[in-house]
Design a protein around this nucleic acid. Structure first.
Length: 209
DNA sequence: ACATTAAGTGATT
DNA sequence: AATCACTTAATGT
């Protein structure tokens, strides 16, 4: 499997071999759900390319963006769940076409003790994610929605590498767990401040917000 | 031309 | 900040 090139520097050779031997390569198209709430986790994913959006879903269909998983990262939730065969509390959807490696969770215990680089990798992704989650939490707890919206837009623009964002107010509202009317009003205010331009299903960011 | 969906807004809680 | 009710604008058929 030639895809693991990028890990040769990160992992020791034996581990790379083990990955090549046991991991399966999976492709997911944009918009497809990779993991749903309540699903039991059977494999640990490592994202090779594309972008995965991880959200919390509420009963009434509202969702809250938790974090994105970038290439060369894995999902921290998976590590914490899979060890004890718990079900997923989050939903993961492919934001762009994704290719990833799926590693059977049965190997995790063994790998953790056997390969120091694997343990490091796991710890690092958990630590990073924890950090990001704390940011999200204090945004929700301590910052006003308008600040959150601006951060969200910046994040989007960084992630898609474009100042043109193709989202409806409705979609944004649902990701920030609020309502469309509120988003419309906040965006309108941003537009009046000459910080964005609004179109139908599109938002153009001006300068650095 | 008409129906559907997105966005804007005032008033109320 | 949310909800309602209503308007206006854009888009698809």
């Amino acid at each position: 499997m030639e895809v693991v090139e990028q890990f040769k520097t990160l992992f020791e050779p034996e581990l790379v071999q083990a990955i090549e031997k046991y991991a399966t390569l999976i492709h997911v198209k944009e918009g497809e759900t990779i993991l749903d709430v309540g699903q039991i986790i059977r494999t640990v994913p490592i994202i090779l390319s594309g972008l995965v959006k991880v959200t919390r879903i509420e009963e009434d269909g509202k969702e809250l963006l938790l974090y994105y998983v970038n290439p060369n990262e894995s999902c921290a939730m998976t590590f914490t769940c899979c060890m004890q065969q718990h079900v997923s509390e989050v939903q993961a959807v492919a934001e762009e076409d994704v290719s990833m490696l799926a590693i059977p969770i049965g190997l995790m215990d063994e790998w953790l003790v056997k390969y120091p680089t694997w343990k490091n990798f796991v710890m690092k992704t958990i630590r990073n994610r924890f950090h990001e989650m704390i940011n999200v939490i204090d945004q929700i707890a301590f910052q006003k929605l308008d600040v959150r919206l601006v951060n969200y837009l910046k994040e989007k623009s960084k992630v898609t590498d474009s100042t043109l964002i193709n989202l409806s107010h409705e979609q944004i509202a649902s990701e920030l767990a609020t309502t469309r009317v509120v988003i419309s009003r906040l965006l309108k205010a941003l537009e009046n401040d000459k910080r964005v331009l609004l179109y139908r299903n599109q938002i153009k960011l001006l300068r650095d917000l």
